[in-house]
Write a protein that binds this DNA or RNA. Structure first.
Lengths: 194, 194
DNA sequence: TCGCGCAAACCGACCGGACGGTACGCCAGT
DNA sequence: ACTGGCGTACCGTCCGGTCGGTTTGCGCGA
């Protein structure tokens, strides 16, 4: 499939440039040059520059949501499920580190309808996570003296922040970081009696 | 002092617009109109658009560093000092929520020399925090089985993330959030024997 | 097998306009 | 008379997006 290749190369080039230079400071001309295609070709596959940004988010959100659904469907003791979810989201966020950088920096640049969709899909993920915590609280495994939204924010903050400090060349491997962050989080939210 | 007033109004307008629209999508024209001054007046006090961004960062970084130094100088048991630092940085970050939004979104838009300075000053803060954790580890209060940089990142991630979810109109007050986040963090990093 | 026709893929010169920044001059205060 | 504070008009540049046209690939009738 050669035709799809063009769209893929454009997406890859856009991701790379957005991550290193920022969305607003990257011109469409730069993107198409980096991808080795012409502007006409690009505008044949994408509606706008904004569309490129959305394509990046779409891919990442779809993947993470699929993982989440799968893990939750597998079932098991709450804490094990939460642990698996945490480890997974940290690991995939590391796999998609450039996407994460672009995401948090440039999400606000999306035009209204697309911003709405991205926001809603993130919310779904957060809500699913909150529901897990709720289950854990009902079962007495997780503490209830801290508002649940704060617990959710406390976890996602780590995921969010990864693109600001983690480097694959650094001393820690992906799974080490995933397990250590998960452990710190779980230790914080478990009920005192342990 | 009327002359300073112009610079202040420009800074305030810039902060507001950068926080709601983003740095790149805000034009100098918009800023001066919102501030009720002209471009000539603005360029009399600031060297460039980039300079406005830096002024915002400068103010926040200076304030937080001053707080940190004061708290550390006051001394006391390690855990109390760390707790005080955590609570303070969360609280001041809430006080400076728009600044935080702009900071993390648009830091990469700064031109080279200024980016360097901002980065270095943030590093100083992180290093001072890491030194505190080190002291706690030496005294056996904090766990040593997780790399210290990860502990530091784990904490600053919460601070970072505040601008993404916290709202003064929300159910939690500033100091509640500060104490709860601090508590979650401390619980995670203390040595198991408690 | 060949060529015809046609749609999809692709090209790249071009457009309108907005943007950051500057040149230059006025004017109030000293 | 001279300086700092400020207003205004304008400049060069670059950007996202378009559009008329060309090429490519392919189903299909003879």
């Amino acid at each position: 499939m050669k035709s799809t290749n063009v769209a893929d190369r454009v997406t890859a080039a856009a991701l790379d440039l957005f991550a290193t230079q920022g969305y607003a400071t990257t011109s469409v001309q730069q993107i198409v040059e980096a991808a080795g295609v012409t502007k006409g070709a690009m505008y044949h596959y994408f509606q706008s520059k904004d569309d490129l940004l959305f394509a990046i988010y779409d891919r990442m959100l779809a993947l993470q949501k699929a993982h989440l659904d799968q893990i939750v469907a597998a079932g098991g003791p709450v804490e094990d499920v939460v642990r698996a979810v945490c480890v997974d989201v940290v690991e995939t966020s590391i796999d998609f580190l450039p996407e994460g950088t672009v995401f948090f920096r440039s999400m606000h640049m999306l035009t209204e309808p697309r911003l709405k969709e991205v926001t809603q899909r993130r919310r779904e993920y957060h809500d699913a996570f909150a529901a897990l915590l709720r289950r854990g609280q009902d079962e007495g495994v997780f503490r209830t003296d801290v508002p649940r939204p704060l617990l959710v924010a406390h976890f996602f903050s780590d995921v969010h922040y990864l693109s600001h400090w983690y480097s694959p060349e650094g001393p820690e491997t992906k799974s080490e970081v995933a397990e250590q962050l998960t452990e710190l989080f779980l230790r914080g939210i478990r009920t005192a009696a342990d």
